[in-house]
Amino acid sequence: MKVFTIKTGILFFLCLGALYQAYNTDAWHFVMLLFLLSIILAFYFLVPVFTRKSIPFLSIIVILELIQFAVGKELYAYLLLFLFYFMIEMSSNTSSDFFRMVVILFLLLSLAIGIILFSYPTMIWISFFLLISYLLVRLNELDEDYQQIRETYESLLSDYRIQKRQSYYNEHAARVEERNLIAREMHDSVGHQLTALMMQIEQYWIKEKKEQYLLLKNMTEECLEETRKAVRLLQVEELGGIASIIALVKKLESENNIHVHFTTKQGVLQVNLSNKQSAVLYRCIQEGITNAMKYGSSRAVYITLGVSPIGSLTFEIRNPYIHKHPFHYGFGLENMKKRMEEGHGKLEILQLDGEFILQGNIPVGEECRDDSRVNC
């Protein structure tokens, strides 16, 4: 957007200067130039519509050369500047071979018009045209090389994202398969053995009615129930705590062109989060990364998890942010703040020079049942 504004400003001042010079010459020159510049600008702003970008640019250059020949010396300098401007624009929209042919044509026509208007072109003018022509050709070659590098980069980036996504899903599928295998083994071996043991104890208790058999039976039932709970937990795919945050980061990196620098400080992995606290942390990190993807000035996000001196879990999300206008509380930030307050945590939002920071802390091990009760 900034480049487009600069280019439009340059073109506007060129048009304004040429029209002012034509107006001071005579009315006919002004009207003719205004009409032809309208056609030229129409071609220029309709370039994205054309399949072959060379057609509108070639039409513009031909019209400008005709204006040079028809108008004469008065507007020669402005028309040359117009030619250089559109040749530079053309260099980034056409192939090298075609652009070299256009540059040669431009050089010959400009020299011919220079001979007609000024009787003979001086060595300075010839050197100037040769230098400009060389610079235009080099610019076209560099732009073509850049486009090839850019296409190669985009292709490699796309392949990388596909491979990373595939790696994530393969790892996820392998982990789920391994958990299911462990769950089946526990169910088939330990569960069946405990069931058989409980039936044997039941038979002994029926025969002898001893309290020891009843105690063993109850212990076996409890052990069987714990085994069933463990099997059910192994079959659940959802992760909790810090593991869910790591899975979220891997998922977002594999599905989006974003680089997350994830850091955990000492003691974080030993923090015991409740289900509600895990959900709050997960949603806050998710919203912070999404916010950075939407409004950040680059694709890098820096996330740091730590433990405060009083034992609270802290997180910090940083991303480059160079917009001059201040941030405002949208739905996402309001929702984050509300979630943190519901979990008796705090969220701070900072906008520094070139950086946007989200800082929060969640009290760990404190279950707040009522606002009137003390945390325990």
Rank of each mutant, 00 (worst) to 15 (best):
F128Q: 09
A77I: 13
F118Q: 06
G72I: 14
S110Q: 13
R100S: 05
I113A: 04
S133H: 01
I162C: 02
I124T: 13
F84P: 02
N93D: 05
R179E: 11
F128P: 01
L135N: 08
R175S: 13
E171M: 08
R175M: 05
L80R: 10
T94L: 00
L130V: 14
E177C: 01
L81C: 05
I124L: 13
F86Y: 15
K164A: 07
Q166F: 04
F129G: 01
I116N: 07
V137I: 15
G72M: 09
S155P: 01
I63M: 14
L64A: 09
L80A: 07
N170Q: 12
T94E: 02
D159H: 10
L130G: 09
V103T: 06
M87E: 08
K73G: 04
L108Q: 01
I60S: 07
R165S: 10
Y169S: 05
A112E: 10
L66G: 08
G72E: 11
L157A: 13
I60D: 07
A173N: 08
L108W: 02
V71N: 09
W125V: 15
Y134T: 12
A112Q: 11
I61A: 04
L135W: 05
Y146V: 03
R179S: 14
F98G: 00
F99E: 00
V62H: 13
F86C: 11
E154F: 12
S133M: 00
L80I: 12
I132R: 12
F69P: 00
